Amino acid sequence: MTVIDSNTLADRIEDLLPQTQCTKCGYPACRPYAEAVARGEANYNQCPPGGAEGVARLASLLGKPVIPLNSANGIERPRPVAVIDEQVCIGCTLCMQACPVDAIVGAPKQMHTVIAELCTGCDLCVPPCPVDCIAMPPVTGEATGWDAWSPSQADAARERHNRREARLAREREAAEARAAARRAIGTAPAADAPDAAKASNVATTTANAAAPAAPAADDAEAKKRAIIQAALERARQKKEELAAKGQGPLNTERVSADVQAQIDAAEARRRRLGLAANDVNNADDANEADTPSTKH
């Protein structure tokens, strides 16, 4: 019996995955799922975007029988694309932070837009949206699974995901370096204090350069609050309409730890402000939810 190296096998499995990075398989991205399958820790029928054909491809590679897609991970369906309701969006940036392939562009308190040709239909931008302004309409007709996707699209999505992960790693390292420089002020010997202070000043300057500028005047701030208040009021009305129809947010059961942490942080901000979990009719809450830590 030939033994296949698990790393090499993981590479071959990953090449057969659609690279939507949707986490429906139960893993944070396609690569960790491929590694788990290679180690025998996950089954090869847990990828809804790949559908039945995806299961068949993996079964052929692994020399195993073709089995049905595990319904616990989702269903095979036409590929959707995220669409943001511009009349409801409040520019909180949470959808941008959740998108695994940087397919959403925008700025804090500004309208966000989905680049349709880059969207993998992963659904991950839906749960963190505090005003439920993102829809996921299907765009491939009756085509599902690999009939609704292509190897070239998968390769492009994987490249964007890898670039995003590398960028986030650099940002984390930079943040840690700034924190270390600040700590050095209190721990460095007196002779080294000027150097520590200089490092801290550089870090502070860098952080300030990345931070959004403060409003130039009170009337500008008041205008921003009025715009946000109007958007939140529209969002409240839309939520009431959806509730009356028995509709609600999508994909709220299986989200990655990072996305869930963003949702939890938003709820914590609401509690800190003394707001109910479902109360979006407050401009201060929108300001608190403005966390442009991820650059696009």
Rank of each mutant, 00 (worst) to 15 (best):
I13Q: 01
I13F: 05
E14W: 00
C22P: 03
Y33W: 07
A34C: 13
E35A: 15
A42C: 10
A42R: 06
Y44H: 03
N45W: 02
Q46I: 09
G50A: 13
G51W: 01
G54Y: 09
G54Q: 07
S60H: 12
V66D: 06
I67L: 07
P68C: 04
V81I: 15
I90Y: 01
V105K: 07
A107R: 15
P108N: 08
P108H: 07
L124W: 00
L124S: 11
V126I: 15
C129A: 02
C129Y: 05
P130Q: 08
P130N: 08
C133K: 00
C133F: 02
A135M: 08
P137M: 05
V139C: 00
V139G: 01
A157F: 03
R164V: 06
E165K: 11
R170Q: 14
E173F: 08
A174K: 11
A174V: 05
A175N: 04
A179F: 06
A180Y: 01
A184T: 02
G186L: 09
T187I: 09
A197R: 13
S200F: 15
A207P: 02
N208E: 13
A210S: 15
A214N: 04
A222M: 07
A235S: 14
Q237P: 05
Q237W: 07
R254Q: 15
R254H: 12
S256D: 14
Q262K: 14
I263V: 15
I263P: 01
D264V: 07
D264F: 10
D264T: 10
E267D: 14
R269H: 11
L275Q: 03
D285V: 10
E288T: 10
A289T: 04
